[in-house]
Amino acid sequence: MPQGREDLIQSLAKSMGMGDAQKKSFSSGKYNAETGAMYCNGHMITKATIEQAKSYFTTQYRRLAEKDDEGAKQLASLYEVAMESIGMVADSSKSEGE
């Protein structure tokens, strides 16, 4: 996994409250571009669930980014990281297959 993407994922995990003890059990996920599924930490995340997550994070980002509240804007930036991370995983896996 490219280091930049790994750093982004670790940053997201940290911002969502994942501590160092939990980080040790973290295993890098694998994305299957053919099926659209992701495999991580011993389980499969289906394409439908991934699309639902990206849609959720995008909706939450748009809703919070418009508010004139510093806390809302900070939370919006976390949602932005999540939705962009999902897109980066899918996009990078597609380009590796070409």
Rank of each mutant, 00 (worst) to 15 (best):
residue 29 G to C: 06
residue 41 N to R: 12
residue 34 E to N: 13
residue 50 I to L: 05
residue 51 E to A: 09
residue 38 M to C: 04
residue 54 K to N: 07
residue 41 N to I: 08
residue 38 M to A: 06
residue 49 T to N: 09
residue 38 M to N: 02
residue 46 T to W: 00
residue 47 K to Q: 09
residue 32 N to T: 06
residue 50 I to W: 01
residue 43 H to C: 13
residue 54 K to G: 05
residue 37 A to R: 05
residue 51 E to R: 04
residue 29 G to R: 02
residue 53 A to N: 01
residue 46 T to H: 01
residue 44 M to A: 10
residue 37 A to E: 10
residue 52 Q to E: 05
residue 33 A to P: 05
residue 39 Y to D: 09
residue 39 Y to R: 03
residue 47 K to R: 07
residue 48 A to K: 05
residue 42 G to V: 03
residue 39 Y to N: 08
residue 38 M to G: 03
residue 54 K to A: 07
residue 36 G to H: 00
residue 48 A to P: 04
residue 34 E to H: 13
residue 45 I to P: 00
residue 41 N to E: 12
residue 44 M to L: 12
residue 49 T to V: 10
residue 45 I to F: 01
residue 41 N to K: 11
residue 35 T to I: 03
residue 43 H to V: 14
residue 41 N to Y: 08
residue 34 E to Q: 15
residue 45 I to V: 11
residue 54 K to L: 01
residue 23 K to Q: 15
residue 28 S to Q: 13
residue 43 H to S: 12
residue 54 K to F: 08
residue 45 I to A: 00
residue 32 N to D: 14
residue 26 F to H: 06
residue 29 G to Y: 02
residue 40 C to S: 14
residue 30 K to L: 11
residue 31 Y to A: 01
residue 30 K to E: 15
residue 51 E to W: 02
residue 27 S to F: 14
residue 24 K to T: 12
residue 38 M to K: 05
residue 35 T to K: 12
residue 32 N to Q: 13
residue 24 K to M: 15
residue 45 I to N: 00
residue 31 Y to L: 05
residue 45 I to R: 00
residue 23 K to R: 15
residue 28 S to P: 10
residue 36 G to Y: 02
residue 43 H to M: 13
residue 37 A to H: 08
residue 50 I to M: 04
residue 48 A to Y: 02
residue 23 K to P: 10
residue 28 S to R: 15
residue 40 C to N: 12
residue 50 I to C: 01
residue 23 K to S: 13
residue 43 H to A: 14
residue 34 E to T: 14
residue 28 S to E: 15
residue 25 S to N: 10
residue 41 N to Q: 13
residue 44 M to N: 03
residue 31 Y to H: 11
residue 32 N to Y: 00
residue 40 C to D: 13
residue 28 S to I: 14
residue 43 H to L: 13
residue 54 K to M: 05
residue 47 K to E: 04
residue 52 Q to Y: 03
residue 33 A to T: 12
residue 54 K to H: 11
residue 37 A to K: 04
residue 31 Y to N: 06
residue 25 S to R: 12
residue 50 I to Y: 01
residue 37 A to P: 03
residue 33 A to Y: 07
residue 35 T to M: 07
residue 23 K to L: 14
residue 24 K to Q: 15
residue 38 M to F: 07
residue 42 G to Q: 06
residue 53 A to E: 08
residue 28 S to H: 12
residue 30 K to P: 10
residue 32 N to W: 04
residue 35 T to L: 05
residue 23 K to E: 15
residue 31 Y to V: 00
residue 42 G to H: 01
residue 25 S to T: 11
residue 54 K to I: 02
residue 31 Y to W: 10
residue 42 G to D: 09
residue 50 I to A: 01
residue 52 Q to H: 05
residue 32 N to V: 01
residue 33 A to G: 11
residue 38 M to P: 00
residue 50 I to G: 01
residue 35 T to H: 10
residue 34 E to Y: 10
residue 38 M to W: 02
residue 34 E to V: 15
residue 39 Y to K: 03
residue 41 N to L: 10
residue 34 E to F: 11
residue 39 Y to M: 02
